[in-house]
Amino acid sequence: MNNLLSAPARPEASVPEPARRRSRTEVVVTVIVVLAVLAAIVAGLSTHRFATIANAKAIITSASLVGIAALGLTLITIGGSAVSLAISPSVAAVGMIFLSAQSLGLVPALVLALACGILITGLQGAVVGYAAANPVLLTIATSFAIAGLATGISGGETVSPTGTGYDRLNATPGGVALSVYALVVLALILEWTLRRTAFGRTLYLIGENRRAAWAAGLPVGRTTAVAWFAAGALFAVTAAFTAAFNTSANVNLGGTLTFDAIAAVLAGGTPISGGRGSALRTLAGAVLIAAVSDILLLRGYSTGVQIMVKGLIVLLVVILVHLRAKGRNA
């Protein structure tokens, strides 16, 4: 039995599919994006010392630490778990563990850091995946728990490295920081995983419609947990680089990383509602924010202005993504 539908005529065949038509909103959004890119290029070229190789290195280096954490967050967001608000304390805790384990040597310390990172974030992911906990509420709670535990164990002191192995993470092969290589390689691996594996497909489907995925028998709990596991590993990589760069770590090591990572994911155009987005988009988002900050810095604007503009970029992209989604559904 082949084509079961050969008999009845298909009246809708002549009707144009609505998706084929470009709506006006979509055109407007495209125009705004093109204008924004042009404006950014003009602003960059007209800024003294912006278009130099040294400056490009500076931009991507400053994007790399936030970028790696944002890659982890991308997995969480695509899978429909919105965001983790516990990135900063997780990174601080793992960074402290990493430095205090330096006496074991670099590789064991890295493995330990990865294991702790996976454990901390992966446990939260298991609760989100299997028990359908609200990720925002859960990670608000865990961020206090992690920070409290880290403060209690360290006695509020700053942890100093117990060895010198960590310094190899500060190497600059070819004149570019090691963290930049890590960012690019991890982004490519992640992009491939999302596009080409069953795990990636399942993650997108769960993010788009968790209930439908559950009803279709997809492994919702397991896939969500694995996504958070991987995110935990990426947070741990960020932690190791950040701790090595600072050569010491305390509970404030994470700084504003939570919101910086969220900003990078959103600026890349990944919607917070899940089901869409990519690692390369997040990479672009992180670089975009770093580049704009850089332009403002070179032009002599204050830190306050830089932070404010970061917020405006995120706002603009979020509105554009929303408009585009609406234009498609219309």
């Binding site: 399942t202 419609n209 439908a212 869409r276």
Partner: peptide, 29 residues
Amino acid sequence: KAEGLFLRRPVSWNLLATRLPQVTRLGVL
């Protein structure tokens, strides 16, 4: 809409959503 299809995804993804193990090798499509 609520518990069946993934509306923003293409026909191919929807048809094969429950068959991923059959169209992958070691987890790779």
